[in-house]
């Protein structure tokens, strides 16, 4: 480590790793999409899951596929029980693709079907994917889903397919896109009106349908945006942060003053 250049490079790398999300990608003038999930507001109602199915043409998973571990849910509610009866409490964690800055899925794709775009989205290009499933194995959040079967849309279910979203075929990986089709649409509309995108113009289906506003989506580069403010909350943490994947989704911890005493009382 005597070489001064190497030392400088290492320092720069360490500094880069320590940077807040949104400050290292895509320059300062571009967008950096991110989400905040407030676990304190989530009631586990699954409205986000349902709206995601409808918005993104996700194949409906029947019981055998769910029990077989092959269900597709771009966003899912993970439920945890805390404590023992009668002090048991349900904890809900909505888990979706975290759009990691340092994603484990992107580097392993042999055909560049998944990549990070200028706006911080982890993009899956369906027509490039050859179905190696390396990315699904590289994802610590299990947020990538393989199409083991061709989806069936018996009439009249096919009438409700979203024309803005590809219907995926058998043999490829799919995952949450942060509703990139809605981002594109909002940009087109803003462009027509000759204005910049405002905070709240882009709402993914899950965010739009959340009855308690537990999900907040927006541009992390816009310091005034709701999401950029929420990201700096003292309750903030990121899922499996020690994986080093630098996810773009920040979770806000549950506020529960009784949690500790209930647990200790039981113990």
């Amino acid at each position: 480590m005597s070489n001064p250049h190497e030392t400088a490079a290492l320092a720069a790398t360490l500094e880069g790793n320590g940077a807040l999300i949104g400050e290292d990608e895509g320059g300062s003038d571009g967008h950096r999409w991110g989400m905040v999930v407030d676990a304190d507001l989530c009631t586990g109602c699954q409205a986000c899951v349902v709206s995601c199915y409808a918005e993104n043409n996700i194949a409906i998973s029947e019981e055998d596929r769910i029990t077989g571990g092959r269900a597709k849910t771009w966003i899912r509610i993970e439920r945890y029980w805390e404590g023992e009866f009668p002090h048991a409490k349900a904890r809900f964690v909505p888990v979706l693709c975290q759009h990691c800055d340092n994603a484990g899925c992107e580097t392993v794709c042999p055909v560049w079907a998944t990549y990070h775009n200028d706006e911080g989205l982890n993009v899956q290009v369906y027509n490039r994917c050859v179905g190696t499933r390396f990315c699904a194995n590289g994802c610590v959040y299990s947020a990538r889903y393989f199409n083991f079967w061709d989806a069936e849309w018996p009439t009249p279910l096919d009438y409700q397919l979203n024309p803005d979203v590809t219907v995926r075929t058998k043999g490829i990986i799919e995952k949450c896109t942060f509703c990139v089709q809605r981002i594109q649409r909002a940009k087109t509309e803003a462009n027509r009106d000759n204005r910049e995108l405002a905070d709240g113009d882009v709402q993914p289906a899950c965010v739009q349908s959340c009855p308690t506003s537990a999900l907040v989506f927006g541009d992390l580069h816009d310091a005034e945006s709701q999401v950029a403010q929420a990201v700096h909350s003292e309750r903030g943490f990121r899922l499996l942060e020690n994986s080093g994947f630098e996810p773009a989704v920040t979770y806000l911890a549950k506020i529960d003053p009784h949690a500790k005493e209930a647990t200790t009382a039981h113990e």
């Binding site: 990549y115 775009n117 200028d118 989205l121 993009v123 290009v125 369906y126 027509n127 490039r128 803005d164 979203v165 590809t166 896109t177 990139v180 089709q181 594109q184």
Partner: peptide
């Protein structure tokens, strides 16, 4: 030139 503009 972003893929996600057309492929999504």
């Amino acid at each position: 030139l972003d893929c996600a503009v057309c492929h999504r």
